[in-house]
């Protein structure tokens, strides 16, 4: 039964990823670039969903992890002259440490307290980027275009911001995240995480040390968010404080809930829909946040399971 679900969902996700791969040859430049961006942001949402959707912990400070990866990678390139791969690994290692430290503290709380602790730590991180502006370039952020080396494939040199490089690296990141999420969700560990979401104290009384599993989920979610941030820095060659702001912590909540919390592929749909919705609205008015707010409210009242959550309930029971 489980094996069949695993095969179905891998096929389903594989199909969507294949579609994304083919799309790059068809899409006009503008949408080509949009989809690249969506895939990086969706990876962030997939990482976020790991905590919200599968473990049942809502964080309001995930921008901290995204920005930690982004700044570690960016500053590593700027000051330490790291290679792109080095910067990516440095970003990953840095967020691993940050999320572990954060988890050790924040997981002593739960529910609404956890939410506010994450909000406060996130805000502290944001303010420290502003405060140490001589080192981090504060509000202005900085560009990596002049500091980043070139990617060599088959003796040909490419910029990391080359549209094709960007698109395919984003696709690789997304593929890796979806695959890892799916495999974890079909493993015994995934089963325990879902049990924690459903009923934490009962899970404890089945003999599991719930704290360690929550820490695992948080560190994984945080580190993956960080890697997505580092990737964003590399592919879009810019590092800035907007990615550490509270809005950037709220975005993955919206994407995840809209796409369907607790479904592996949901965040991708949520991110894509919101990205294009905001994009279209921005063409009409600069005030796209009105739409973001309205979608949040309407969704939480009438559509709490999100797109894939509703589909799963109705038809696709095998969906992870």
């Amino acid at each position: 039964m489980r094996k069949k679900s695993l095969i179905y969902s891998l096929l389903f996700q594989g199909g969507i990823l294949l579609l994304l791969f083919i799309l790059q040859f068809i899409l006009p430049t503008y949408h080509h670039s949009s989809v690249s961006k969506i895939m990086v942001l969706a990876s962030y949402a997939v990482a976020y969903n790991f905590l919200l959707g599968y473990t049942g912990l809502m964080s309001l400070g995930h921008a901290m992890f995204f920005a930690a990866g982004m700044y570690a990678a960016g500053l590593g390139i700027y000051y330490l002259e790291l290679s792109a791969l080095g910067a990516l690994l440095f970003g990953a290692a840095f967020t691993l440490v940050i999320s572990l430290l954060f988890g050790l503290f924040a997981l002593r709380t739960s529910g609404v307290s956890f939410l506010i602790v994450t909000l406060m730590f996130g805000q502290t991180f944001y303010l420290s980027i502003l405060y140490f502006n001589e080192f981090t370039f504060g509000q202005d952020g900085f560009s990596l275009a002049k500091h980043l080396g070139k990617l060599v494939i088959f003796n040909k040199e490419y910029l990391y911001s080359n549209p094709d490089v960007r698109y395919n690296f984003a696709l690789i990141l997304l593929t890796a995240y979806l695959l890892i999420s799916t495999l974890i969700m079909f493993s015994p560990v995934g089963r325990i995480l879902i049990a924690i979401r459903e009923n934490e104290s009962r899970t404890q009384l089945l003999g599991y040390n719930v704290y360690y599993y929550k820490l695992f989920a948080l560190v994984l979610s945080g580190t993956f968010s960080g890697i997505a941030g580092a990737m964003h820095a590399l592919l879009f060659t810019y590092v800035g404080t907007t990615f550490a702001e509270i809005h950037h912590s709220i975005s993955p909540i919206l994407w995840t809930l809209l796409g369907g919390a607790g479904t592996v592929i949901g965040p991708l749909f949520g991110t894509g829909i919101m990205y294009y919705l905001v994009d279209i609205i921005s063409g009409i008015t600069s005030n796209y946040q009105l739409v973001v707010g309205a979608v949040l409210i309407l969704m939480i009242i009438w559509f709490p399971m999100g797109i894939m959550g509703t589909l799963r309930q109705k038809w696709m029971k095998w969906l992870p």
């Binding site: 049990a195 899970t203 089945l206 003999g207 599991y208």
Partner: peptide, 9 residues
């Protein structure tokens, strides 16, 4: 899933 959770540990 209910029983499996207990079994696997």
């Amino acid at each position: 899933e209910n029983v499996a959770l207990s079994v696997q540990r």
